[in-house]
């Protein structure tokens, strides 16, 4: 039948056209699903540090004095700014990171932040950053619907939608329904 031929054409060409976006949304979907376990946007490296003379830290500490403190951990060239989030904590902003130090014990944590390439860009798109991108993502969503529907009718016979395909399609619908019945209703 003519319609089956057109379904094949549309499924094929949409498959090519939306291959890239499918990967973007799928991969970023996985990473965003596991944001609690793995930061896909940034690589954050934490290192414990200890300053020998925390007694030098006082509420009005100057920029130069903070830089002198940073010499102990080899970060004097990275100084950007500092402030006291709490009375016993000094936070020092560095180029590419920060350090937070307990002013009583001298113990602290140095944190370095770098961007994670590719994942960060994919997550940015997935988060729908601009109104203009909303149009593209809506078109993509529509294309996925078309891909899903046309995909049902690509194959004829025992392995098509009138045969085994019907059971697999039904299974794919039942699984989320069971989840909803258990956890939602």
């Amino acid at each position: 039948m003519q319609w089956r031929k057109w379904f094949r054409v549309v499924h094929r060409d949409f498959g090519y056209l939306f291959f890239g976006l499918t990967l973007v949304y799928s991969i970023s979907g996985i990473t965003l699903n596991h944001l609690d376990d793995w930061n896909s946007n940034y690589i954050i490296i934490r290192k414990e540090i200890t300053l020998k003379n925390p007694g030098q830290i006082y509420p009005g500490i100057t920029k130069d004095e903070v830089k002198a403190l940073l010499e102990e951990i080899g970060e004097e060239g990275s100084y950007k700014n500092h402030y006291f989030p709490q009375s016993d904590q000094l936070k020092i902003f560095l180029k590419g990171g920060s350090a937070i130090i307990n002013t009583e014990t001298g113990n602290g944590l140095l944190e370095r932040v770098t961007r994670r390439p590719f994942f960060r860009e994919m997550n940015y798109l997935h988060y729908n950053p601009q109104v203009s991108w909303t149009w593209i993502s809506d078109i993509f969503a529509g294309a996925l619907i078309i891909l899903a529907i046309t995909g049902l009718f690509l194959v004829r016979g025992a392995k098509g939608i009138t045969g085994r395909g019907a059971w697999m399609t039904l299974l794919g619908i039942i699984i989320p329904l069971i989840f909803l019945l258990i956890f939602f209703y």
Binding site: Y42, H82, F93
Partner: peptide, 10 residues
């Protein structure tokens, strides 16, 4: 649409 981490301290 996004704030960069480099803004910290600025």
């Amino acid at each position: 649409s996004v704030f960069e981490p480099e803004l910290e301290g600025s």
